[in-house]
Design a protein around this nucleic acid. Structure first.
Length: 503
RNA sequence: GGUCCCAUCGUCCAGCGGCCUAGGAUUCUGGCCUCUCACGCCAGCGACACGGGUUCGAGUCCCGUUGGGACCGCCA
């Protein structure tokens, strides 16, 4: 199964931040490379000078690194290969597979409008393809600008694609199956602009050839380009790579997603900032158009590498059901569910390492968590993780666990602390009682508290909920005695007394 | 407008002619557990776009309709 020669690439254009669609494309390529022990290369398609930015390149690299989608070669810049693209264009011209076209953009625009008016399809009418060598020479002498167009074989002129006389471009897409495009439906497309800059269709193919790409795995929007690129490969006498197009990810209104239209929520950076685990995001993205054979939802990195198959990729587009301004979900609920699942089930030490920088960022980190308080730290993270959805929940919702500086939530105050006026007296009394509990364990604290509530002739629940509110400031949380043991007698007593002051 | 792709619960997926009175995940609802919330467990709501064929039998194959999407640039 292992093929050392497999080479794939992710070739984003740096015109915006890395968005989840791009990340998914990168992920599929990466998985495929890893699975086959192949090479994953990163190529930045920066030939659109006007729209490409360095910030964007940086954001893409950062995003990929954060996701853990490491590349084996690159990042290379497409613009560096421009001489090769131009060389390829020259070769096409020389072999008669391309020609110079002197039609102006205005003329073409005019023809396009006319065709539109008559509700006819428009394709370049090949005016310049019929120019004699002398006519071409004379126009060049006049210094007229020209573009280079690819000469699409014209069956009506007796041109065929190959010796078989095929009148259409055919290829086998790994996910979409046999794709056929008639030559007559392909216009003589431009490969080099009048200012001498090669266009994407050409550059991309030439780069893939030079990079020795064996499998082109990209979004379905590339499917329409493929026949033309195949024509280029053939004209250049190069073997074809395997093409595999993956379904697109659409927004809830079923439109293509873009940073411009949807904002941060579609960028990878957003998920990093909101406390997603890199692999949890990948796991979510992975399932947007692919499934394991047994339809598992939680797929580890190793499992994904082992089980990934392009053949199981879906053909129908999928919807990224992100939410905005939703009180409960800040993105696709499923993405959050997967993230939460990892948080509550992953190895606690690994989680501890991911939570650490979050606490640090919030000024809640104690260096002792790495040394003598490490057990306490991991125990505490373990105690609270079941109800958290993102890493951000640890410094935010988890603040009372890591700091004496926290606020009592109004709801907790009202519902659990002000419920019974006698709590103002009881809390300090209970504080005294707790300080004398020795040893301070799950069982002993519970016994002490229950005894206390029996003496006061109230239900233990009343006291328990009040104590939780006093100690954590929150309505909901872990089991109370776990909390008590976590905080220890001193902090417990302090917090109880402090809360009583608010009553 | 032309060419092409796609079509199962709200969303993500399973299904590759009989195992489907359509399964899982997520969301939502109810219950159990219980000191609260969450977790966990149980239950419920919820879909084969429509119409024709083919077949003993169709979610699964074919055609059409409808709907959605992509591509059709001197953008990538």
């Amino acid at each position: 199964m292992t093929d050392q020669n497999i080479r794939v690439r992710f070739a984003p254009s740096p015109t915006g931040y890395l968005h989840i669609g791009g990340a998914r494309t990168a992920l599929y390529n990466w998985l495929f490379a890893k699975q086959n022990n192949g090479t994953f290369l990163l190529r930045i398609e920066d030939t659109d000078v006007e729209r490409s930015t360095d910030d964007s390149v940086q954001a893409i690299l950062d995003g990929l690194r954060w996701l853990g989608l490491d590349w084996d070669e690159g990042p290379a810049s497409q613009s560096e290969n421009r001489p090769h693209h131009q060389e390829a264009a020259r070769a096409l011209l020389e072999s008669g597979r391309a020609y110079k076209c002197f039609c102006t953009q205005e003329e073409l625009q005019q023809k396009r409008l006319e065709a539109e008016k008559e509700k006819k399809s428009y394709g370049y009418d090949r005016t310049c393809r019929r120019l004699s060598p002398e006519e071409v020479a004379s126009r060049e002498e006049q210094g007229l600008p020209y573009v280079i167009r690819f000469k699409v074989p014209d069956p009506s002129l007796g041109d065929t694609l190959d010796s078989d006389g095929a009148e259409s471009v055919m290829f086998e897409d790994t996910v979409y199956g046999t794709v056929e495009k008639r030559l007559e439906d392909i216009e003589d497309f431009v490969v080099v602009r009048s200012d001498g800059l090669p266009l994407y269709l050409l550059s991309n193919a030439v780069d893939d050839i030079r990079d020795g790409i064996t499998h082109v795995i990209r979004g379905q929007d590339g499917l329409g380009n493929t026949p033309r690129q195949i024509l280029i490969y053939r004209a250049l006498g190069e073997p074809l790579p395997v093409f595999a197009h993956m379904n697109l990810t659409l927004d809830p209104k079923r439109a293509k997603i873009s940073k411009r239209k949807h904002g941060e929520v579609v960028t990878v950076g957003f998920y990093r900032e909101r406390g997603f685990l890199p692999w949890a995001l990948c796991n979510f993205l992975l399932l947007l158009g692919w499934s394991t054979e047994d339809n598992r939802e939680i797929v580890t990195r190793e499992e994904a590498i082992r089980e990934f198959t392009l053949a199981r990729a879906g053909r129908a587009n999928s919807v990224f059901d992100y939410r905005k301004d939703d009180p409960k979900f800040f993105t696709d609920p499923k993405a959050i569910a997967i993230n939460a699942e990892y948080i509550r089930t992953m190895n606690i030490e690994e989680l501890g390492e991911l939570v650490a920088p979050e606490l640090e960022g919030a000024g809640l980190w104690d260096p002792a968590y790495e040394t003598e308080r490490r057990d306490w730290y991991l125990h505490t993270v373990d105690l609270i993780r079941a109800r958290y959805h993102t890493l951000k929940d640890f410094p935010e919702l988890g603040r009372p666990y890591f700091s004496e500086e926290f606020t009592i939530e109004p709801k907790a105050l009202k519902k659990n602390l002000q419920k019974d006026a006698r709590l103002k007296e009881w809390l300090p009394e209970l504080a005294d009682r707790m300080e004398s509990v020795e040893p301070f364990t799950l069982e002993s604290t519970e016994a002490a508290l229950r005894e206390f509530s029996e003496e006061r002739e109230v239900k233990a629940g009343l006291i328990i909920n009040a104590v939780r509110a006093a100690i954590t400031g929150q309505l909901a949380g872990a089991g109370l005695f776990d909390i008590l043991v976590t905080f220890g007698p001193t902090s417990t007593a302090n917090r109880l007394r402090k809360a009583a002051l608010l009553l």
